[in-house]
């Protein structure tokens, strides 16, 4: 078992409980031990929203989380692209400016915390490649998803800015999702929108634009034959799944493209029951996928 300090993020504990549950199930199978306790008091990363108001405040809260992780000596695992990106950006600023880090550590001292800069926040998607090994992951796949066509959808924060996320140093990070989809036996549906924005951040500000984005991406994947879309970002999931009915109305076109969380895809390939992965807890029905699964041997 490989241990990680687990940072689930707000959404998997809020509107996407199916992500939380499927993560636990799948990680156990993969030999990833998620230690919950150290980060139970960790704050929200700020999701880029808090940073609009006060970047330093966001950086201090994330430094607090990193300091809590450092105390455990464990690596940090997250299951949200947005958390991943926001934490990586904070970490980048903290590490590249010693004075800034010192200044923030002074504020953390009252909380009996110090951050030295050693933490490397990592999304489950990256952990699969960099800590578990994609061959091992493949060895745990017992049910081939051959016949399915899946489209990847990353979420902005796990692909940009590329220098902050060290994509060039870890080239697998550039196409990890595609590799995982192909490893399950499913056919990859590549489409240009895979690294675009889902529209979630402006949902409450400009719902029309946000919904148009949902419509564009889901339809373009669908037209390329996708049976479902897979995302490592619960915020993308919320928008692509939750606002797909609105997008459908806006475009006057049926879409019905299920949006799977990354652990749900992994779980299906591991032969785990769809109900255990909470596939029934989506807004866009996953019934078609489930029924196809049950007839394939």
């Amino acid at each position: 078992m490989k241990k990680f300090a687990f940072y689930p993020g707000c959404v998997s504990r809020g509107a996407c409980p199916e992500l939380f549950d499927s993560t636990l199930t799948v990680c156990e199978r993969l030999g990833i031990e998620l230690i919950h306790e150290p980060l139970e008091g960790a704050s929200c990363t700020g999701a880029g929203v808090l940073q609009e108001k006060n970047q330093k405040l966001g950086d201090t809260l994330n430094a607090r989380t990193f300091a809590m992780v450092e105390k455990t000596g464990l690596p940090l695992l997250t299951i949200c692209s947005t958390c991943q990106g926001v934490m990586a950006q904070a970490n980048y600023r903290l590490r590249s400016d010693k004075n800034y880090l010192d200044e923030i550590n002074r504020d953390l001292a009252d909380e009996n915390l110090q951050y030295s800069g050693s933490v490397e926040p990592k999304h489950l998607l990256w952990v699969l490649f960099e800590d578990i090994g994609v061959d091992y992951v493949k060895s745990q796949f017992t049910r081939s998803l051959e016949g399915f066509k899946f489209a990847p959808f990353y979420g902005c924060y796990i692909v940009r800015p590329s220098d902050v996320l060290a994509l060039d140093v870890n080239p697998d990070r550039k196409n990890s999702l595609e590799q995982i989809i192909e490893a399950t036996g499913a056919e990859l549906v590549d489409f240009p929108g895979k690294t675009a924005c889902c529209g979630f951040p402006i949902l409450l500000i400009n719902e029309t634009n946000s919904t148009k984005m949902v419509g564009n991406h889901t339809l373009s994947a669908k037209r390329k034959g996708a049976d479902a879309m897979v995302t490592p970002c619960p915020l993308c999931h919320l928008n692509l799944d939750g606002y797909q009915p609105s997008a459908s109305l806006l475009r006057r076109e049926k879409i019905n493209l299920p949006i799977l969380h990354l652990p749900q895809l992994l779980g299906l390939a591991m032969g785990i029951e769809p109900t255990e992965l909470k596939l029934n807890r989506h807004i866009v029905s996953t019934k078609k996928i489930i029924s196809t699964l049950s007839v394939t041997p």
Partner: peptide, 15 residues
């Protein structure tokens, strides 16, 4: 509307 609050923070421009 169509001003500063309509940016979706996708970081494409930064990239």
């Amino acid at each position: 509307p169509s001003g500063m609050w309509d940016c979706t923070r996708c970081m494409q421009c930064v990239e």
